[in-house]
């Protein structure tokens, strides 16, 4: 059980690491939000599951923290992406289309 917990912990931390790497490498703010939100959500869920294996008596509280993160993380990313778009954040030159800017009549 302890070994399983420690392995889950390493797997979660590895995803956190990938999220950090994505944050550094991705070309614009929207791609960075993508990398940041997905990797940290799964990474944190896995580390919390790992701690739950190491300390089964903490499982309920860790589950509450995990559920909270699972529901709030995508919301904050989405609100942030929306505000970045409304404020006219710079997009990577690789970006193909921007239907939202087209719909609002702004140059995409």
């Amino acid at each position: 059980m302890d070994l399983l917990g420690a392995l889950l912990l390493v797997a979660g931390a590895a995803f956190l690491f990938l999220g950090g790497l994505g944050l550094v490498r991705m070309p614009d703010v929207f791609n960075r939000i993508q990398a940041g939100t997905k990797a940290t959500t799964l990474g944190t869920l896995l580390t919390l599951a790992g701690f739950a294996c190491l300390r089964p008596d903490w499982a309920v509280k860790l589950l509450l923290i995990g559920l909270f993160i699972l529901f709030t993380n995508p919301i904050s990313s989405q609100v942030l992406a929306r505000s970045a778009h409304r404020a006219g954040a710079e997009k990577s030159p690789l970006t193909g289309v921007d239907r939202l800017a087209e719909q609002e009549g702004r140059p995409s």
Binding site: A14, L16, R32
Partner: peptide, 28 residues
């Protein structure tokens, strides 16, 4: 691994360039 991830997010937080980038980094 988690510490390294934190440092990379800190880099993005200090580097920016836009405020939204800093907020994403802060969130992470």
């Amino acid at each position: 691994l988690a510490g390294a991830a934190f440092l990379m997010a800190l880099y993005r937080f200090l580097q920016g360039p836009s405020s939204a980038d800093r907020v994403v980094a802060f969130d992470v």
